[in-house]
Design a protein around this nucleic acid. Structure first.
Lengths: 192, 192
DNA sequence: CGGCATTTTGTACGTGTATTCCAAAACCCG
DNA sequence: CGGGTTTTGGAATACACGTACAAAATGCCG
């Protein structure tokens, strides 16, 4: 019937995600996308519709990979505090170790475009809401076992952890002192 | 001696700051800068050296105005917790009330360019360090009066508050639920 | 009141942008 | 193996980008 695609759509989206992640939306040119994906501009446009839509796909892919990984850590087997620690230490190390500071794609999207593009805002909110949900489950579990002593509403404790976590990732963009960041993690966990 | 400037340099930087703040570095064109400042492209280039240097000036101006305001709140007269609350509520309201979500310029800069431009990274870190310093002073004061019961190192408590605060500002980019954000503030303060 | 120093202004530059178009190529099915 | 359909590569579009430059405009000093 027709000529078949010469590329794997998933690989293309992953490559586009890496590029957007590193350089942001405005900082990424269609040319850069073509180079990183290996596609010509016409294939990109025919398949995905354009830069903006590809960005949205990339954001969804981030959710399916990195955020999913994060959620898996939160659903681990150890004590609640250890799972929260794992999540935060993992993020700090990722932010500091990577040669080019790309941080968290969802946060980057929230800062760069959520204010301008409602669809991006929605996608990021869904991502954040999902993380909050998982954090609430961890807090609830830790409280059931008596590990966490805080008596406040599990939801607001979860949001507090989430805020601290996202804030840490912001600080890690300009702060190279790993120990200071880890101290903040421990200080947070100690008071739960 | 010479033809005098027809513009006020301070006003130009303030206007440029507003534009960069709203649209980011890559999202701001020289043309947009010309329109918002009222200057021609050559005047901009002659006076400030170019887009990048103007951005750095804008970042410094943000420090001198918004961050200075924030520090003034922290140096207020009330109890320590109230001062911390004021800072956070102030930020939440600013983030939610503004028609166009522009957030905190320093955070935006950290996310968008700190990874690519060492000078920007330094400027943002100085800003963040300054805030941390002030937070530490508030924590220390609160502890002296017995208002804060946490016994951990004042520095790590301060960094924890700072993380939560920056994280809140990220959440506020996609989350319109003011009460949820304020709950997080109260939950944070309650455990200090 | 003329000349000098300096800013301003408008414009031109070359490059890069996002996007579109089209002819040629590749495939599957009959 | 040919016809229908999609993909592909690359050129073409129209415009925006950051920057540079020459010429006009201005105020002060002598």
């Amino acid at each position: 019937m027709a000529r078949p695609r010469e590329f794997d759509e998933d690989r293309v989206i992953t490559a586009a995600m890496e590029t957007f992640w590193r350089h942001g939306y405005e900082g990424t040119s269609t040319r850069a996308l073509c180079e990183s994906t290996g596609l010509g501009p016409s294939s990109l446009y025919n398949t995905f519709g354009g830069k903006r839509q590809l960005y949205l796909r990339a954001l969804r892919r981030y959710y399916e990979t990195s955020t999913a990984e994060q959620i898996e850590i939160l659903r681990g087997e150890g004590p609640a505090k250890q799972r929260l620690r794992d999540m935060m230490v993992h993020a700090v190390d990722a932010d500091l170790d990577e040669a080019d500071g790309r941080g968290c794609f969802a946060i980057n999207a929230a800062v760069e475009i959520a204010g301008l593009d409602p669809e991006v805002k929605d996608a990021v909110r869904r991502n954040f809401d999902r993380v909050e949900e998982e954090l609430r489950a961890v807090v609830a579990a830790g409280r059931r076992t008596g590990e966490l002593r805080s008596t406040a509403d599990a939801g607001s404790v979860a949001r507090r952890v989430q805020s601290t976590y996202y804030g840490l990732r912001i600080l890690a963009r300009v702060q190279d002192d790993r120990q200071a960041l880890l101290d903040t993690v421990e200080s947070t966990l100690a008071d739960l």
